[in-house]
Amino acid sequence: MKMNIPYGRQNIDQKDIDMVVKTLQSDFLTQGPVVKSFEDKFSEYVGCKYSIAVSNATAGLHLAVLALGLKPGDRVITTPITFAASANCIRYAGGEVWFADIDPDTYLLSFEETRKLIESKPKGFFKGIIPVDFAGLPVNLENFRKLALEHDLWIIEDACHAPGGYFADSNNIKQMSGNSNYADIGIFSFHPVKHIACGEGGMITTNNEDLYKKLLLLRTHGITKENMSENHGGWYYEMQELGFNYRLTDIQSSLGITQLAKNATGVAKRNTIAKRYRQAFENKIKFQSLPQNRYNAHHLFVIESDNRKELYDYLRENGIYAQIHYIPIHTLPYYRKIGYKEADLKNSENYYSRCLSLPMYPTLTDEEQDFVISKVLDFINE
């Protein structure tokens, strides 16, 4: 029988279903207590002070740049190897996207390339940096924070791939992805192929109370009821900013709570799967490196191939639906149209010509993974 193995898959069990049904039978389907409960549990999990649940991670990125004061014409640096939303949020606010190249081994935004780009311009030229914990591997944000402080920049950590991942800082303290100890804001995604599946959804994390209040305001139309006085009734509210309807529902939040509860187990299983891939491919196939003092949450397991298209087709013929992550943003038609035709991002373009994401999710069985490994090795040994 032909296998049918996707690159990613959600894991919904009876506890998830029961929690959603309980919410469906409650008084609140949205703007109720389950949202706040999810936010509190998420803050506890990543180790931050504040979490703000939003409709998706793209909405979270959009609110983040607005809360940090991004204005039209402001310039922000990010990586070309990420989903387009990491850059698009800058454009939503009228800002300019500047790309720095990736490290060819970790596939993360290169600290050295970012530093060189910042230092090539006068102080104040850039406003912020959006590093991405690509494939689940956390960026060492301690280094980026030092650079940001020198040049008065803010940092948004796009941690959508990495809930449960961490790096150890220079004091050997474990820094969970999105805990905002070195970034101003963290962003997570709850798309079905991510670790925590809510159908759609996202979370913003921060330790800054002022940013937290600003984000809450922007999430719900810019409206607040906190300024009620004795002269007004219970109906009174104020719209203080031009905000958005970027709320997450109680239904989705209830699913998020049960999904979050099993994430530590899921990340451990992802690392077991990654270890088996590494052992099978060592000295045969290049894959994402794992620097010391990092724990990869493994949203993806990426390999490289000189014959990527042929390998991609061969795996699909055998029921293995590998995927490509990602087409470099600067090569997409929209970004080429606005001026990125000649961008010098050789590492990113070389990576894209070779990259392939293999199946990676907690319910992947040993039998299925053995089949994937055997087919990849069969291809390279032909």
Rank of each mutant, 00 (worst) to 15 (best):
K2P: 13
K2W: 14
P6W: 10
Y7I: 08
Y7V: 11
V21P: 03
T23N: 03
Q25Y: 06
E39K: 01
S55C: 08
N56F: 09
T58E: 06
A64I: 12
A67I: 06
A67Q: 00
P72F: 12
I77M: 05
I77H: 04
I81C: 12
F83S: 13
A84V: 15
G95P: 12
P104S: 01
P104H: 07
E112V: 00
T114P: 12
I118F: 10
E119R: 05
K121Q: 04
P122L: 07
G124H: 07
F125C: 02
K127L: 01
G128R: 02
V132D: 12
D133C: 04
G136R: 04
L153N: 01
E157K: 00
H161T: 00
H161F: 06
G165L: 02
A168H: 08
A168M: 12
N171G: 01
Q175V: 08
S177Y: 07
G178S: 03
N181Q: 15
F190Y: 15
M203W: 04
L211H: 14
K214I: 06
M228K: 08
M228E: 11
E230Q: 13
G233L: 04
E241D: 13
L242R: 14
Q252A: 14
S253Y: 07
L260T: 00
A261W: 06
K262I: 12
K262M: 10
A264N: 12
T265I: 02
N271C: 09
A274V: 05
K275I: 05
R278S: 12
R278Q: 09
Q279E: 11
A280M: 05
N283Q: 09
K284P: 01
K286V: 10
Y295P: 01
Y295A: 04
A297Y: 06
H299I: 01
V302H: 15
K309A: 14
E310L: 08
E310Q: 13
N318T: 06
G319V: 03
I320E: 13
I320P: 05
H325N: 12
P328L: 15
P328C: 12
I329P: 03
H330L: 03
I338Y: 11
G339F: 06
G339I: 11
G339K: 00
G339M: 02
Y340C: 09
E342W: 13
E342P: 01
L345D: 10
E349K: 05
Y351A: 00
Y352A: 14
S353C: 06
S353F: 11
R354S: 10
R354M: 13
C355T: 13
S357D: 15
T365M: 02
E368D: 12
Q369P: 13
Q369A: 14
D370L: 09
D370T: 07
V372A: 04
I373R: 01
L377M: 06
I380F: 10
E382H: 10
